[in-house]
Design a protein around this nucleic acid. Structure first.
Lengths: 113, 113
DNA sequence: TGGGAATACTAAGTATTCCTGAGTATCGGG
DNA sequence: CCCGATACTCAGGAATACTTAGTATTCCCA
């Protein structure tokens, strides 16, 4: 009975993948094909990933991320707050990302004392 | 000649793992043992991970993250800026994480126009 | 100077996991 | 009812990781 957060017995990667795909609104098969998976195994493979039956390798998840507009690290974020942070951060231009970094450094310094 | 960023031909995971381990200053073998890997294969396995010869599964990386004080998603961050963001964010207490989220949302809204 | 221990690293065979191909289940429209 | 689309399952062959045995290098110190 170890469960850090609310939902699901499915793996983190599986859950995040489905979350991201449904957000964009494409089918499992379509996602796989866009990622370069053979059209005849695409449906099966993506389904196995989302059901947590098998685990996609890093390169595949990088392609999924690029198609679904999420950073790759998002798929590995167990914590919802971290996941949301990654989404927000990825959508910023580089200059504002640097600003955000400065802001967090200040927050961190205050918090220690 | 495709290289998004400066360094290394070694995989993202391999590079981040070594980075995090050296920061803490423990040996490959020691890291593996702390993560529950058999002491007789620990050295080999962690070395294979850091050389990019093999890829550790998610659960193993979660243990490494907890030992090395980095969030699991850190190991999958190709971009250095995102990696640093994850480290800073993980070190904040929950209340300040929420603050950081609000800040990122504001930055995002301004940037779109 | 010459062990000995610690660390990093490699090769190869076995063990484990994934990918492919074939198939079932369900739903909605025509 | 039938068709296409989507989601999903299973089994065996294909690919990858894990274990065992070993090498190379450095540092310590007797």
């Amino acid at each position: 009975m170890t469960r850090t957060q609310h939902s699901a017995d499915v793996s983190v990667i599986a859950r995040r993948l489905r979350e991201a795909r449904l957000n964009v609104g494409i089918s499992q098969k379509n996602l796989g094909i866009q990622a370069g998976i053979d059209e005849f195994s695409s449906s099966t493979r993506v389904n196995q990933y989302e059901r947590g039956k098998h685990v996609p390798d890093f390169q595949t998840l990088e392609k999924f991320g690029s198609i679904l507009h999420v950073p790759t690290a998002f798929f590995y974020a167990r914590d919802d707050v971290t996941a949301e942070m990654l989404l927000l951060f990825a959508n910023l231009p580089r200059s504002q990302q640097n600003r955000a970094l400065s802001y967090l450094k200040k927050l961190g310094q205050k918090g220690v004392g």
